[in-house]
Nucleic acid binder design. Sequence first.
RNA 1: GUAGAUGUAGCUCAGCCGGUUAGAGCAUCGGUUUGUGGUACCGAGGGUCGUGGGUUCGAGCCCCAUCAUUUACCCCA
Length: 456
Amino acid sequence: MEKPSLPKGTRDFGPSQMLKRQYLLQTIRTIFTRYGFLPIETPAMENLNVLTGKYGDEGDQLIYKILNSGDFIKDINEEQLLEGSKKILPKISKKALRYDLTVPFARHVVMNRNEITFPFKRYQMQPVWRADRPQKGRYCEFMQCDADVVGTDSLLCEAEIVLMIHEAFAALGITDFIVKINNRKILTGIADAIGKVGCETDLCVAIDKLDKIGQDAVLAELRTKDFTELQLTTLLPIFNLKGTHTDIFPTLRTLLKDSSTGLKGIEELERVYELIEKSGLPNAFVETDLTLARGLSYYTGAIFEVKILNVQMGSVCGGGRYDNLTGVFGLPNVSGVGISFGIDRIYDVMNELNLFPSQDSNATKLLICAFDALTFEHALPLVTKLRAKGINTELYPEPLKIKKQLSYADDKKIPFALLIGEDEMKSNIYSLKNMITGEQFNVNLDDTIQKVLAHA
RNA sequence: GUAGAUGUAGCUCAGCCGGUUAGAGCAUCGGUUUGUGGUACCGAGGGUCGUGGGUUCGAGCCCCAUCAUUUACCCCA
C-alpha cells in the first residue's frame, strides 16, 4: 500500500478553512468591484516564452515548467544534453504554470487590444505557482488577488490602490499595517547620482539590510560589488533619510538634482500623496521606504508593499507600475499599475489574530432525523419545502439510531434537529430540538420554518 | 543554493544512564441508554519507533548513511 502525500508547499483546505477563505475573497472582491474593477480569468498554464524574462533571473528559476507531452526527449541528442539544462529546456518544455497574474494579464490585454476599452480595470483571483522552498507564510501554490489598471499614466491609479488597501484591511479588521511605497525612478536616480548607472538592484539589496546588519556591514557588502569609497560617501546621506515624506523629499531632491529620472520619481510620489490626501484619507498608513526595491523586474514607477505590524510575516501585498509589460508583447505605450493581495498570508495573519467572524451561518441549519424507513419517506417532501424557504436543510441519509444522527448534527454544529418518528408522522407535529440549549418543542412544519429562520 | 531542527498510534507529544511486554491526552468505534447529541463513567481497536546499515549480550535512545518534514538566510505574496 502506498501512503498518500501532498507535494511540498501545497495544502488541502477543509470546509472550515474554505468558509474563511471564501469570506476573505468575497471581502476583497467587493472592494475591487467598488473601485470599478471587473473579473477575468486566465489559464493555469501559459506558453513558457510568455513568462520567462519578466521576473528577473531568480524569478525565472522558480517557474514550474511543464514537460512536453509524449516522448519529450526524442529530439535531444547526447551532445545537446552536455550543454546543460538551460539549453535543452526550450526543447523539452513549451508550457509553464503561471508565476503571477500580472504577466498573464498583460498577455491577455495585448491579445484582446481591439475589444478592450482603455483604461482597462480588471481583477483576478487565481492560484499561482512558484518552485520555492516552503516555509512560514510561503507556499508553492498560493492564491493571489490582483487588481490592475492599464492604459493610463494617471497617478490617481496609484492613489486609489492605497485607498483600496486601506478599505480592504479595514473591512477585514486588520488595523496595524503599513503601506510601504517607493518609486523605481528614485532608485534609478540614486544609482545615477553616485555614478553607478544601472546598479540599483545591487544597491537596494544591500540597503534593504540596513536595519538588520547595520551601516558598516552594508558598506562592506557594497564594496564587494565594486562600489568605490567616493560613491559610498555620496550614498551615506541617503541612509539617514528617515521620517515622513515631507521630511525626506527636500533632501532627496537636492541629492538627486542631476538625475532627471530621480526628480521625476519624487514628483510622482508627491502627487500620489497629494491625491490620497484630497481623496479624504489624510492619515493614511503610508511610509516612503527608499530601501523598498521588489524583485520583479518589470516595475518602472511606483512600487508598493504592505506589512502587517506585530505579526511575524513577510509582506502580504505587493505591486507597482509597469510601463512596458505589454510592450514586450508588441503593444507599446500602455502603462499599467496594480496591486496583488497574498490571501494565503492574510489568512494566516487573520487566523493568528483571531479576526475571522464565525462562518456558521453558511452551514446547515436543520437536520431531519427519521427513525425508520417509513418516516424517512415521509420526510422527503418536508426537506424540499424547507429548502424552498431558504433553510439549509439535510435529511440524514439513513434512518440510523437517533444517537448517531444527533451526534452528526452536533459534530457539524447544526443548530436544529427535527425528529420524526411514527407518532410525529401521524400527527404532523414534530419534535424540534434546539441543539444549543437542548430545548425541545412540538411543532408543525410552519412553526419549524419560523423558529429556524428566527434563529438566524 | 547555504545553515540548523525534527521524524514514536489518525493528531499532539512523553519515553530517565542503552535494559524485560513502547505510554498519555485528544480523536475514532462500542457500551452504560433498542426514541435523544454535546457532559460523565466503562471498554476496544490502532505501532516494522521514517528507511537502511553499524556498535552492543541487548538500541525508540549511541554512530553512519539516506529519505521526508520544518525553520532561518537568499528571494518573495
